[in-house]
Write a protein that binds this DNA or RNA. Structure first.
Lengths: 230, 230
DNA sequence: ACTAAAGTATGACACGATGTCACCAAATAA
DNA sequence: TTATTTGGTGACATCGTGTCATACTTTAGT
């Protein structure tokens, strides 16, 4: 029953009440409560009722800060967005060995997915029950598709990746990631991080750069394969 | 407002009342009403109330046949499953040019996705709000992953596809399809079928068999690319 | 310090959806 | 015809929602 071991903070812990406005404080308190709630229970159980029961405020206080439970999720998702984009992948920006960078990026992303697993699932569940949130979520996913497409195109220019329309491939890969995180890290106990990260890296690298790169980078999964250069 | 042009029947039209039992008839009537409902309105709007308002029966009659709205979806999904598996892909079973067969299979699948778009979206939405349904849906998706994995493995034996662990790739591809259908055909007006089918085919074929196969098969999308072998 | 205004929080309420139950009606069998 | 089974219903208790009038708290003005 105890909400064991909270995740790395996504939401600011409500700060000492004196320093910031009372309203600000309450709002943060609600957001924080929501994040904690979703850590241990599915989105469908998070009614305004149930959520506000976890903090001293009255249920109606909720409506001072959010339109409804989906409005709350939208606010939470906004925080997630900045978090995500902050750790923006080295692969997307840096120069250097593309395969190595990609591997790094995906590892970092998987790490993040692991940390926020149940919350990510909550967002994708919530998106299914609300049009506005669905848009917001899709927009975020699209941004990923854009970034990845661009990077693919760049490497195609350099001849590192074969020529093909980058977008559908980018979409497929991103969707794959998101679905994997939701399914592997969305429920507790979460699956172990490493195998999931490996599987994802293998699919990306072999899809984009070819199978010969995957060996020896992924930690366990497909050790048998291929030595040669290409 | 008029629920224009109903989809290809997934659910049996309630048959003449005399022949089959009254109960059977009512149950079919409800299932049919639900399918029609979902054709024009999202799952989240389908309350027992709203649904039963579309047929002469009283609201409480619903509970004679289903536990709740998710029970209804489960029943509907079961019908969908048989439909899907009936048209089971030639690529998965037949012999012959694998690329051609795959193209055919995907086209048929896309066609089906197009026909049931809003309903498929409804199922995936409903799965997000109910644990049992989520399992049922995931199981169905897994079955696809299995089938595709097997076929990939078979073609790897024949040297038609490079050696790699088939499962994560199969999963990625299937997830890609499902997400595309939901997003492109899940709302009305639905996107046009052809471009979606092309995009999907291109991703599958180039991922599995290599890029040299995609030209000339896809109807419009990427005519510019690649003549040569690679 | 006192008061007014603004900001914040709450209980009570009306509404709509749910699922159950005791009861009614229709079909069938005796 | 009556008795029994099967199918269907209205009324009800419960729960979640969102709003509103009201009350409490803080801040600013004098």
């Amino acid at each position: 029953m105890s909400p064991n071991k909270s995740p790395k903070r996504l939401v600011v812990e409500p700060e000492p009440i004196a320093k910031i406005g009372r309203a600000e404080h309450t709002r943060a308190e609600i957001l924080d409560a929501a994040f904690k709630f979703l850590w241990s229970r599915p989105f469908r159980d998070m009614t305004v009722n149930a959520l506000m029961a976890t903090i001293p405020q009255s249920r109606t206080a909720f409506y001072m800060y959010f339109d409804d439970i989906h409005g709350l999720m939208a606010a939470l998702l906004k925080k997630l967005e900045s978090e995500i984009l902050k750790g923006a992948s080295p692969w997307l920006c840096d120069d250097g060995d593309p395969v190595a960078l990609l591997y790094e990026s995906l590892a970092a992303e998987a790490q993040f997915g692991y940390q926020c697993g149940p919350f990510i699932k909550a967002v994708s569940d919530a998106a299914a029950t609300n049009a506005g949130l669905e848009d917001q979520w899709n927009t975020l996913l699209d941004r990923f598709d854009d970034a990845v497409s661009e990077r693919i195109a760049a490497d195609q220019e350099l001849g590192l990746i074969e020529a093909f329309d980058p977008r559908p491939v980018a979409t497929a890969l991103n969707q794959f990631d998101a679905a994997k995180y939701v399914r592997k890290f969305g429920h507790r106990p979460r699956s172990r991080l490493q195998p999931v990260a490996d599987a994802i890296a293998r699919v990306w690298i072999s899809t984009l750069y070819g199978h010969q790169w995957t060996t020896g980078r992924t930690s366990e999964l497909y050790r048998k394969q291929v030595p040669g250069s290409h």
